[in-house]
């Protein structure tokens, strides 16, 4: 589904070099220490930054020359996913039309997705009137109305309490399965990866040092740093 072919990138002194091929429908947990390059990987995919060399392909086509908003993906950040002065309906509506001129069908679509993530009563509210979990639900709803085959999650649930986090992951898993969406999710929590993901990849010093199916993510992994990471997280 998404393929990084020797993608090189440099930010100040740090160098990044990514090479990975992710299959359609996978839910991939992106693990690694802070500053290892997890967010850089997602930012490259989303097109907020451009690689120095190499190629990024989504669904078999190179996206390097494609504007961020034309790439077939939706994205969720850790915070500030919502525009603070726009209400929930408008924030979700932006996923359908960046000028906020919605047709009746599109409005129905917004209402429908809101029911699926359980926020149909919140439509007229402003983000400041929502709890942390509600905010991320709204943002997630926007990702799903965008109807893109790839979803990038940059630690959107890490600030939530464990119960909420599990709830959100369940929603992601359910909707991703229903819409056949491939998911790349950055997380600090091994438990999240084990709960929700089908695959994992481990980023270390700007490189992907280990990747595979989720049942290989355990304390017996041949990669020593990953082993250490798993042991510390369990």
């Amino acid at each position: 589904m998404i393929k990084f072919c020797s993608v090189k990138y440099q930010y100040q002194q740090e160098q990044f070099n990514f090479d990975i091929d992710i299959g359609t429908g996978n839910i991939v947990a992106v693990l690694g220490a802070s500053g290892a390059g997890k967010s850089t990987l997602l930012n490259l995919a989303a097109g907020f930054i451009n690689p120095l060399s190499g190629d990024i392909q989504i669904a078999g086509k190179s996206v390097l020359d494609v504007q961020p908003h034309r790439r077939p993906l939706a994205m969720l950040f850790q915070e500030n996913n919502l525009f603070a002065h726009l209400n929930v309906a408008d924030n979700i509506g932006l996923g359908l039309d960046p000028g906020l001129k919605l047709t009746r069908d599109q409005k129905a679509k917004v209402a429908d997705i809101c029911r699926q993530v359980g926020i149909e009563k919140l439509l007229p509210r402003l983000p400041q009137q929502l709890s942390g979990g509600q905010k991320q639900r709204v943002a997630l709803a926007r990702c799903f109305v965008q109807n893109k085959p790839l979803l990038l999650l940059d630690e959107p649930f890490s600030a939530l309490d464990p119960v909420l986090r599990e709830e959100m992951l369940t929603i992601v898993k359910k909707l991703a399965g229903k819409h056949k969406v491939t998911v790349l999710m950055v997380t600090h929590h091994i438990s999240d990866a084990l709960n929700a993901a089908s695959h994992y990849l481990f980023v270390e010093q700007g490189k992907i040092s280990s990747a595979g199916e989720i049942n290989n993510l355990n304390a017996e992994n041949p990669n020593p740093s990953l082993r250490h990471f798993v042991q510390a997280g369990l």
Binding site: G47, F48, N80
Partner: peptide, 17 residues
Amino acid sequence: PVENHKLSVHLGISHWN
């Protein structure tokens, strides 16, 4: 917040919008 700018790019919100 920088995420607001990223989102605008990501959602394809034009300059005027």
